[in-house]
Amino acid sequence: MRVFFCLVIICLAGCNSTPDTVKPPAQLLTDHSFTPVTIESKNDVFALSENSIAKMEAEISRSLDKRLTTRSLIKYIFAPENQSLNYLTGATLTAEETFNSKDANCLSLSIMAHSMAKHFGLESRFQQVFIPEYWASENGYSLLTGHVNLRLKRPSASNVALTSTVYDTVGDLIVDFNPSSFRQKFRTQIISEDVILAMFYNNKGAAAMINREYDLAYSYFSAAIESAPQYSSSFGNLGVLYRINNQLEQAELAYNHALLLDNNNNTAKGNLARLYDLTGRESKAAAIRTALEHKRSQNPYYAIAKGNEALYQKDFERAIKLFKKSIRLDRTLHESHFGLAKAYFYIGDISGALSELEEAEKHAYFDSEKQRYRGKIMSLSAQLVQ
């Protein structure tokens, strides 16, 4: 069984309204078993360099009419020459790093766009997008992911040219680097810069934890809690760090505080169930898992996560059943077809693998994904010819 923890791009849980007076147990934030490490400041995360600003100033037109400035900014971000923007789920970068690399996740891309808008005097706010629970796999971990975008306030009604990734709302523009999130018009919620910063730190902490850089992970999670003390997911991730380091009492405190802040933090519940198993409280663990399984039974992304887990355990027949279940729930998800293709490949069914890869390519949203699937199709087709 893999450990589930939140890779906060963004984490689904943790943005519900909670009392400002809820304070964490003091021992969670004064742990001397970890050595503090210097990490990015808030300014480091949001700032753009003079060189980057000069590039923007040369390309983006300033105007007393902020509608024209807005149009120019949008055209610059989504101009054909900038379409090298690559949406990478795991790449968490600062605004400056994103501006120069163009390879980043929705959180980093939204931070960059926010900083650019702010420089030109435009008002923007971050939004959490309440997509279904979705997991990505990395080095044996299942990482819960989510989505954010940017609401760019439009001074007044105007005929701003929109691209496929900018969506019109009442009076505002939504800048979204993953247009697939708009397929089902998911509910959104405004979140602050401080919460976005906490999400950034959680992503970096999760990456450090996977790499076994535990001092660095603790520093990031602590900074996340300092930035947004009511953000549940930071405590859930801190609990995973404690559990990995066999500090089970601390882990339980962290999970319970995460749930005190947000009782809908399913990832913290699942990790608490794992902790109950480790400490001989199997009946409590089973009760949590039964409730979670019922809640997630109709979520195709959960079936994908369990299918990937089965692949990792080399239980290919179970993986096939789970990916087929996900396809029955929603056949438009390319991840389901790709998972099924991998399972077919491992059992030697090359024709089945090819068929599912073609489905994955058909349903993929991004050119980079389509190209990846096309390369695998060509490789497998060559094997069939031989």
Score class of each variant (00 low, 15 high):
144 L>P: 01
54 A>W: 13
89 T>R: 06
87 Y>S: 07
308 N>R: 09
209 M>K: 04
292 L>E: 01
278 L>F: 06
181 S>P: 01
107 L>C: 09
315 D>W: 02
346 Y>N: 11
174 I>A: 07
35 T>H: 14
386 Q>H: 13
297 S>C: 05
145 T>A: 04
111 I>M: 11
104 A>L: 11
221 F>L: 01
119 H>R: 15
211 N>Y: 03
136 A>G: 04
65 D>A: 10
85 L>D: 02
347 I>G: 08
25 P>K: 13
100 N>E: 00
294 H>T: 08
356 E>D: 14
258 A>P: 02
210 I>Q: 07
333 L>K: 07
111 I>T: 09
32 H>W: 08
259 L>W: 13
136 A>P: 02
165 T>G: 10
134 Y>L: 06
358 E>T: 11
259 L>D: 11
307 G>V: 00
60 I>G: 08
1 M>F: 03
3 V>E: 06
200 F>V: 04
149 N>T: 10
86 N>C: 07
123 E>G: 00
232 S>K: 06
271 N>M: 15
264 N>Q: 12
245 N>Q: 14
256 N>R: 14
45 V>N: 00
364 A>M: 03
336 S>G: 08
386 Q>A: 11
106 C>Y: 06
241 L>W: 06
305 A>Y: 03
100 N>L: 09
216 L>V: 05
272 L>D: 03
26 A>D: 14
275 L>I: 04
141 Y>L: 07
355 S>F: 07
368 S>F: 14
158 S>F: 15
216 L>G: 00
223 A>P: 01
16 N>T: 13
109 L>Y: 10
261 L>S: 05
365 Y>E: 10
3 V>A: 11
116 M>L: 15
340 L>E: 03
75 K>W: 09
146 G>V: 12
287 A>S: 14
241 L>S: 03
233 S>C: 05
361 E>D: 00
280 G>C: 08
143 L>N: 04
14 G>A: 14
11 C>L: 07
144 L>F: 07
188 T>Y: 00
328 R>I: 12
225 I>H: 03
354 L>I: 15
191 I>K: 02
